[in-house]
């Protein structure tokens, strides 16, 4: 009975959007060095890897699944890229191979989850370790840094004199695609239905397993694209690139109001969550907060972001029932 008042309650993704604006304004006003163009381009450039993987991760979590192996897939892609470059292949040949590798990584996760019916949390913890291990076997402890300049320049360059990195352009295109797929296509509609009630989705003729397999595969593809971007952006391909990035991605997505149990959330909220986390990490770096402490903050945010929407819902419910009694 309280539902119609709930729909009028504040939506969590709006809360996160407002929070992002508040944090940005506060940082401009109070944090030294935050507002200059160089820092802003660092902020966005460092946040882009999180944002890129957050796109497919949002769809995956909405469907009720999760992929913890994304950072390892990114690392593996970078490592293979470095190894093949050392072998003398051209970068134009290497990139498609790496992307294909990402597809395979995602496919393996997806097949283990859909064919064997294993929980994705367990499967991808396993492949998190496995993919990273393979990366180390492939490249050892080498760091490959001598990629062609025009690629390095693209990955690190800015648009004209602005603070925006060039890589923002392809990201915006991918973001638009993801928004349309999740919010305006039958595929997206089915994704929400699967996450909210998988059995009812199956009874409605939705091909649940096929859809999940596609989502895992695309996640692998985007993770490897991120790995390539990472290696070029930082001009360093190492087996341990992007270690721990999955924590940031999942924290950001959940912070953006994507329900961990599936079936709820918007991509707008998820991306707001990503940049909120990115801005906080940037501010902490400017304030000389150590990397370890930043991970603690990310972890705490992760817990809060699972709690936050629930508390918001409880508060809305309580307020609604107070109005009623």
């Amino acid at each position: 009975m309280a539902d119609f008042s709930l729909s009028r309650a504040v939506r969590w993704d709006t809360v996160v959007g407002v929070l992002l604006i508040v944090v940005l304004l506060l940082s401009f006003g109070t944090v030294d060095g935050f507002g200059n163009a160089l820092n802003l381009s660092f902020l966005i450039g460092n946040t882009l890897p999180i944002a890129l993987i957050a796109l497919p991760m949002t769809l995956l979590v909405v469907s009720g699944e999760i992929d913890l192996s994304v950072a390892s897939t990114a690392g593996l892609s970078g490592a293979v890229m470095g190894a093949l470059w050392n072998e003398g292949l051209t970068i134009e040949a290497i990139i498609p191979i790496c992307l294909l590798l990402g597809v395979v990584c995602g496919l393996v996760n997806g097949l283990l989850v859909t064919r064997l019916g294993l929980p994705s949390l367990a499967v991808t913890i396993g492949t998190l370790a496995a993919y990273r291990g393979i990366a180390q076997i492939v490249l050892g402890s080498d760091a490959v840094t001598d990629f062609p300049t025009q690629y390095l320049d693209f990955a690190a360059g800015r648009i004209g004199d602005s603070f925006l990195p060039q890589a923002v352009l392809p990201f915006v295109v991918l973001l638009a695609i993801a928004v349309v797929v999740l919010h305006a296509t039958p595929f997206g509609r089915a994704t929400f239905a699967i996450g909210a009630n998988e059995e009812a989705a199956r009874f409605a003729g939705i091909r649940v397993k096929r859809q999940k397999l596609i989502l895992f595969t695309v996640t692998g593809l985007m993770a490897s694209l991120t790995g390539i971007f990472w290696a070029l952006h930082y001009a360093s391909a190492r087996y341990d690139n992007a270690t721990g990035l999955e924590l940031s991605v999942i924290a950001a997505v959940l912070l953006g109001g994507i329900d961990f149990d599936g079936g709820k959330g918007t991509l707008g909220g998820a991306i707001a969550g990503v940049f909120l986390l990115g801005a906080l990490q940037n501010v902490m770096s400017l304030q000389d907060v150590s990397a370890q402490s930043q991970i603690v903050v990310t972890g705490v945010l992760l817990v809060l972001s699972v709690l936050g929407p629930r508390v918001a819902r409880q508060v809305a419910l309580a307020r609604a029932s107070q109005r009623l009694t």
């Binding site: 239905a193 909210a196 009630n197 009874f203 079936g263």
Partner: peptide, 13 residues
């Protein structure tokens, strides 16, 4: 289907 809450409907939709 027999069980409308579990199989027939997505209750939150």
């Amino acid at each position: 289907p027999e069980d409308r809450r579990a199989q027939g409907l997505v209750m939150d939709m």
